[in-house]
Nucleic acid binder design. Structure first.
Lengths: 192, 192
DNA sequence: CTAATTTTGTACCTGTAATTCAAATATATG
DNA sequence: CATATATTTGAATTACAGGTACAAAATTAG
């Protein structure tokens, strides 16, 4: 019953995600969103309710795709160390391959909104915790396999890997020289 | 000649810095700034020209004070490793001691503006390079003293320390549990 | 076909962002 | 003291952000 939507809300969320990612939350206007999505304002507010609600959906979409991507990388065959190195290298190449240098939407959001928006801060905190957990599991596999010293605190190593990745993704936004990021990966892996 | 200024522009810049730090650039309004500084809008525009120009001055002030603070820490007496650990721990306690969880203004600025504002991106890039240089000098001292293996690439270690610090300062904005950051420091130092 | 339901585009509204300006005020100089 | 210069406050301005209202259009159940 009723007229069906002329656009796919999932596609709209994905396009909105791209705008928020490039411009940040506060600097993105409803006009930017409707221009990019290709719908009218009526449809935007009828479907999503508010700019903030659309942002939350965009961030959730980012979370799901990003987590799946990273977890798939860490599930590759090979040694734990190689999988960690592969994941970090893939992240670096992903960031360097983006002509807009948008970095990571979750990191950008933490920086922009964590102080003022507790709900969004919580979403980002969970995303970070999930990544940290994936790192931790891989580190523990490496310890069981004897590749990584059992003396090290896997939780601490995972937290530190998370910090390293977050830092790299911020650096990706300003780095002029691609090798800076590759040096980060080399030094981090040499530390494992 | 003419009526003298009724306020100290340096104090105004410092207060503006606090607002930009807490709210971010785009979310800070001229009204926020004049409320915090305690001057009229005319004075603000007469003195600083634009919101963006004031932001640049605030960011420069942040750079100078932050760089001096960090470099003083790294110049403390003691072994290179202890100085690095001391610097990371001091950063963690600084961030955790901020009730607003503002993190680092340079990092927040990289995340929010690097994509859209090349001039600001360049300022932040230089700030990062300066910190990286201070880390590198300390690492090299540690290598000369035999505390840190000479096999490691000092430039790579410094880049990785920079990424670690940036990551920690993002995490400081979302961390519920203070020990997460302390674990990052422990793991990072265990890797040196 | 009609009634009911939902979408869509456009116009509109309210508030405020960012900046400018006018008038009043304060000082330096001659 | 008079005048020129510089600064102050806060109202005025312009544009747009964020969202709402509404009537026309599209779809389907019955």
């Amino acid at each position: 019953m009723g007229r069906p939507k002329q656009f796919d809300p999932d596609v709209a969320v994905e396009r909105a995600m791209g705008v928020f990612w490039r411009k940040g939350y506060a600097a993105t206007t409803p006009q930017d969103l409707v221009d990019e999505i290709g719908i009218g304002k009526g449809s935007l507010y009828n479907t999503f309710g508010s700019k903030h609600a659309l942002f939350e959906r965009a961030l959730a979409r980012y979370r799901d795709s990003q987590a799946a991507w990273l977890e798939a990388l860490l599930d590759h065959p090979g040694s734990a160390k190689d999988r960690l190195r592969g994941a970090l290298e893939a992240l670096v190449e992903l960031d360097l391959g983006d002509p807009d240098r948008r970095g990571c939407l979750a990191v950008n959001t933490a920086a922009e909104l964590a102080t003022s928006d507790p709900g969004t801060a919580d979403t980002v905190r969970r995303m970070f915790a999930r990544t940290e957990g994936a790192f931790r599991a891989t580190v523990e596999e490496g310890q069981r396999a004897g590749e990584i010293s059992g003396d090290r605190d896997a939780a601490a190593v995972a937290a530190w890997l998370l910090a390293t990745v977050i830092g790299m993704r911020v650096l990706a936004k300003t780095a002029e020289d691609a090798d800076q990021l590759r040096r980060v990966v080399d030094a981090a892996m040499a530390s494992l």
